[in-house]
Lab assay of single mutants.
Amino acid sequence: MSIQHFRVALIPFFAAFCLPVFAHPETLVKVKDAEDQLGARVGYIELDLNSGKILESFRPEERFPMMSTFKVLLCGAVLSRVDAGQEQLGRRIHYSQNDLVEYSPVTEKHLTDGMTVRELCSAAITMSDNTAANLLLTTIGGPKELTAFLHNMGDHVTRLDRWEPELNEAIPNDERDTTMPAAMATTLRKLLTGELLTLASRQQLIDWMEADKVAGPLLRSALPAGWFIADKSGAGERGSRGIIAALGPDGKPSRIVVIYTTGSQATMDERNRQIAEIGASLIKHW
């Protein structure tokens, strides 16, 4: 067993022997301040990774656009098919120029040779490549099948209805392509620590998230040296922004954090800054 596999296998073990965790309302004060600064709703939840206990939450059962955070769930569904012998990570998928959609920095470079399922998941999570996500959605049967996968996990809230990039439209009061912070946090925890996926697939999923290259201005910008984070960000229309993450000190994750916002007129930089400040408060009061 590799060191990384050992780390993920012992996530519940280490967490069980940690000192009790206590909620700190100071972080919620910052979440509410972010709402004021952005002029928009902000949803927040913080779960203990081992027990699933909610440590703090704000608007945990209000719907927010998922945006690209759905790509972690998508690759979880792909990995479940791999575990069941219905898919192979090494299978190569070929596609054409007509398949390319807006923001496809990886797939646009491989029109000639195609990409493997493993490479597509890596591109979808680490670079948020939209064509990679659409190609992977095709392998599982489309958005409705991802929703069905989530329902089978016990998540009857999260739903995907459309493809990239239309799913980022974020129309107010439109339930399409949305989740709730509580539902997303619980589902992410199941994917990373539950028995739904094999140990190898859980490790692969967290490795992809740990290698995320496009979430630097968010929670990662607030992390002290030595902290662990595996995350996936999302951005959408109407001032929408979000991030889902597993993080913790001492090089291992111990909490799940989900943050979503929508309806702001603020710039992307300002949305990023507010999420980073929430992260800084979380870490300060850990």
Results as ranks from 00 to 15, higher is better:
residue 164 E to I: 14
residue 246 A to R: 06
residue 285 H to L: 03
residue 114 G to F: 09
residue 94 H to R: 13
residue 163 W to R: 08
residue 209 M to K: 04
residue 134 N to D: 09
residue 279 G to R: 06
residue 236 G to W: 09
residue 34 A to E: 14
residue 162 R to V: 08
residue 30 K to D: 10
residue 47 L to F: 00
residue 56 E to F: 09
residue 126 T to E: 01
residue 260 Y to V: 02
residue 85 G to F: 09
residue 129 D to V: 12
residue 196 L to C: 14
residue 69 T to K: 02
residue 67 M to Q: 08
residue 177 D to T: 05
residue 25 P to D: 08
residue 195 E to P: 10
residue 131 T to A: 13
residue 93 I to F: 10
residue 153 M to K: 14
residue 210 E to G: 11
residue 184 M to W: 05
residue 136 L to K: 15
residue 236 G to A: 13
residue 125 I to Y: 15
residue 110 H to D: 14
residue 157 V to D: 02
residue 89 L to K: 01
residue 222 A to H: 15
residue 155 D to H: 14
residue 232 K to H: 13
residue 49 L to T: 15
residue 223 L to R: 06
residue 148 A to G: 11
residue 244 I to Y: 05
residue 201 S to K: 06
residue 72 V to P: 09
residue 120 L to V: 06
residue 70 F to Q: 05
residue 118 R to M: 12
residue 65 P to A: 10
residue 140 I to T: 14
residue 250 D to A: 05
residue 247 L to K: 09
residue 225 A to V: 04
residue 163 W to G: 08
residue 44 Y to W: 13
residue 35 E to G: 03
residue 30 K to G: 14
residue 99 D to Q: 14
residue 159 R to P: 12
residue 74 L to P: 10
residue 55 L to T: 05
residue 275 I to M: 06
residue 181 P to A: 12
residue 203 Q to R: 13
residue 282 L to Q: 01
residue 123 A to L: 00
residue 157 V to W: 08
residue 150 L to M: 15
residue 182 A to D: 06
residue 79 L to Q: 12
residue 61 E to A: 13
residue 146 L to T: 02
residue 224 P to H: 00
residue 216 G to L: 06
residue 169 E to F: 02
residue 240 S to K: 06
residue 60 P to A: 02
residue 53 K to M: 02
residue 271 R to L: 10
residue 113 D to I: 11
residue 144 K to H: 11
residue 198 T to V: 08
residue 180 M to N: 00
residue 245 A to K: 12
residue 215 A to R: 09
residue 238 R to H: 14
residue 116 T to I: 07
residue 147 T to W: 13
residue 137 L to A: 03
residue 134 N to R: 04
residue 259 I to W: 10
residue 104 S to M: 06
residue 152 N to S: 13
residue 196 L to G: 12
residue 143 P to R: 07
residue 168 N to Q: 09
residue 130 N to E: 00
residue 56 E to T: 04
residue 192 L to V: 07
residue 146 L to V: 00
residue 231 D to C: 06
residue 62 E to I: 15
residue 77 A to C: 07
residue 161 D to P: 04
residue 253 P to Q: 12
residue 142 G to D: 01
residue 219 L to N: 05
residue 216 G to P: 08
residue 185 A to M: 06
residue 254 S to I: 06
residue 208 W to Y: 03
residue 128 S to I: 03
residue 36 D to M: 10
residue 213 K to L: 10
residue 169 E to A: 07
residue 105 P to T: 10
residue 239 G to W: 06
residue 255 R to F: 08
residue 187 T to C: 01
residue 190 K to H: 15
residue 58 F to L: 13
residue 199 L to H: 01
residue 275 I to V: 13
residue 80 S to T: 06
residue 210 E to L: 07
residue 225 A to E: 00
residue 130 N to G: 02
residue 177 D to M: 06
residue 158 T to A: 05
residue 43 G to N: 06
residue 157 V to P: 07
residue 41 R to A: 12
residue 76 G to R: 04
residue 72 V to Y: 11
residue 86 Q to E: 08
residue 67 M to V: 10
residue 77 A to P: 10
residue 180 M to S: 01
residue 116 T to W: 10
residue 47 L to H: 02
residue 203 Q to H: 15
residue 53 K to I: 00
residue 215 A to F: 15
residue 145 E to W: 08
residue 245 A to W: 14
residue 223 L to G: 04
residue 119 E to H: 06
residue 241 R to Q: 14
residue 93 I to E: 15
residue 43 G to R: 10
residue 158 T to V: 07
residue 143 P to Y: 02
residue 114 G to Q: 05
residue 102 E to G: 12
residue 103 Y to R: 01
residue 253 P to W: 05
residue 55 L to G: 04
residue 135 L to S: 13
residue 241 R to N: 08
residue 77 A to Y: 02
residue 276 A to N: 13
residue 68 S to D: 09
residue 27 T to F: 03
residue 211 A to M: 15
residue 39 G to T: 14
residue 230 A to E: 07
residue 251 G to D: 01
residue 37 Q to D: 07
residue 216 G to V: 01
residue 264 S to R: 05
residue 53 K to E: 01
residue 220 R to T: 09
residue 35 E to F: 00
residue 246 A to P: 12
residue 227 W to Q: 02
residue 241 R to V: 11
residue 262 T to W: 11
residue 228 F to M: 09
residue 280 A to P: 02
residue 184 M to H: 03
residue 110 H to P: 14
residue 236 G to Y: 12
residue 213 K to A: 05
residue 280 A to W: 00
residue 251 G to E: 00
residue 172 P to A: 08
residue 274 Q to K: 01
residue 222 A to M: 14
residue 246 A to L: 12
residue 92 R to V: 09
residue 55 L to Q: 08
residue 65 P to M: 15
